[in-house]
Simulated assay, not measured.
Amino acid sequence: MADKSRSVTKRKERKEKESAEVVKEVRNEGDKDGGEVSSEAATSNGENGELQVEPMELPPFEIIAGDRIDPFVFKFQFKNVEYSSGRNKTFLCYLVDRGDMADGLLRGYLEDEHTGPHVEEAFFTQCIPHYDPALKYTVTWYVSSSPCSACAAKIAEVLKVRKNIKLSVFAARLFEWEESEIQDGLKMLHAAGCKLRVMKPLDFSYTWETFVENEEQPLNLWEDCKDNYEFYQEKLADILQ
């Protein structure tokens, strides 16, 4: 099974309480009643000229959000193996510096279930919904796998429109890197100013300490972590050259 299935089938709504908890975890502001992100709100963003991309319907029950990842889930989903059978989700750990020291860094993670929007799309709607063109956003993602071609195109469009967002994407694995459309998407991201890199062993340790319920236990890296990093980094360098 590939990292990311492309199903467009809607999954059943979760309980209202679960939806509210999801939004509460990912957002510091409580200005949306019930935690719902409506398709009308997404359309409004486009009409204001702040984000000239196709509006996305993003019910909160399709994206799992939180502060720290379960350690067993992290070790499975972020393992940088070449053949990633069974890893059919994407985890995105994020840091956002909005250039305002009073607000501090935004930190958390998103997880998709591939029944609707992917985490790369959801980030811009859920994590920085109140985009301010006067601020300078420095955004860092640590993702379990690199974006699919559709997400890469949408991210590139965001970066072209929102010039004050500087995005760095560090990926544990490269998603279907042999496919030409995936390679084109990565090139598109790179051309749009996104910094792309494969996660180094130190990045896994940092992500473990910052985004995982580690109970103050260090991460014991798997034996082939460094070799796998070098493999993927070589492939990425070949794609972006």
Score class of each variant (00 low, 15 high):
Cys148Gly: 12
Leu92Gly: 10
Thr140Trp: 06
Arg162Tyr: 07
Arg68Val: 11
Glu223Phe: 01
Arg6Met: 07
Lys10Gly: 02
Leu159His: 05
Leu240Gly: 04
Glu16Ile: 03
Lys200Ser: 13
Lys17Cys: 02
Gln217Tyr: 02
Cys151His: 08
Gly46Ile: 15
Ala237Met: 07
Ala41Asp: 15
Val158Arg: 15
Phe211Met: 08
Met199Arg: 04
Leu105Ala: 01
Ser5Gln: 09
Leu95Ser: 12
Phe61Arg: 10
Ala171Met: 14
Tyr83Met: 04
Glu21Gly: 01
Cys127Glu: 06
Arg27Gln: 15
Glu209Val: 02
Ala41Glu: 15
Pro55Gly: 14
Asn220Phe: 01
Asn80Tyr: 05
Glu178Gln: 12
Ile239Asp: 09
Lys160Gln: 12
Lys160Asn: 11
Thr210Gly: 01
Gln52Ile: 14
Gly35Gln: 12
Ala192Gln: 11
Lys226Thr: 05
Asn45Glu: 15
Trp141Gln: 03
Ser205Asp: 10
Lys4Met: 13
Phe76Gly: 04
Asn164Leu: 03
Tyr94Ala: 10
Phe78Gly: 08
Val22Ala: 04
Asp132Gly: 01
Asp3Ala: 13
Ser145Pro: 00
Ser145His: 05
Val81Pro: 00
Tyr232Ile: 06
Lys136Cys: 06
Asn220Arg: 12
Glu216Gln: 08
Asp33Arg: 10
Lys226Leu: 07
Tyr109Val: 04
Ala152Cys: 13
Leu159Tyr: 14
Asn80Lys: 11
Asn88Leu: 07
Leu106Gln: 08
Lys136Arg: 11
Met188Phe: 02
Gly185Cys: 10
Leu167Pro: 01
Ser180Phe: 00
Val53Gly: 05
Asp100Val: 10
Ser7Leu: 03
Thr140Ala: 04
Ala153Pro: 03
Val119Gln: 03
Glu213His: 11
Lys163Arg: 14
Met101Gln: 07
Pro59Gly: 02
Val23Gly: 01
Pro55Arg: 14
Trp177Phe: 11
Ala171Lys: 05
Ile128Ala: 05
Phe78Met: 13
Cys127Val: 12
Asp184Val: 10
Leu186Ala: 08
Glu13His: 02
Tyr142Ala: 12
Leu51Pro: 01
Asn228Gln: 05
Arg197Asn: 11
Ile63His: 02
Ser144His: 10
Asp132Phe: 02
Leu186Cys: 10
Met188Ala: 11
Asp203Asn: 15
Glu47Thr: 13
Leu110Glu: 05
Leu240Ser: 07
Asp31Gln: 09
Thr115Leu: 01
Lys163Cys: 02
Glu111Pro: 01
Arg14Met: 09
Leu95Tyr: 13
Asp3Phe: 12
Pro133Tyr: 02
Ile165Cys: 01
Leu174Cys: 10
Asp203Arg: 12
Ser205Ile: 14
Arg14Ala: 06
Glu25Gly: 00
Ile182Phe: 02
Trp222Val: 06
Asp100Leu: 09
Val161Lys: 14
Thr90Cys: 12
Arg197Glu: 12
Leu221Trp: 12
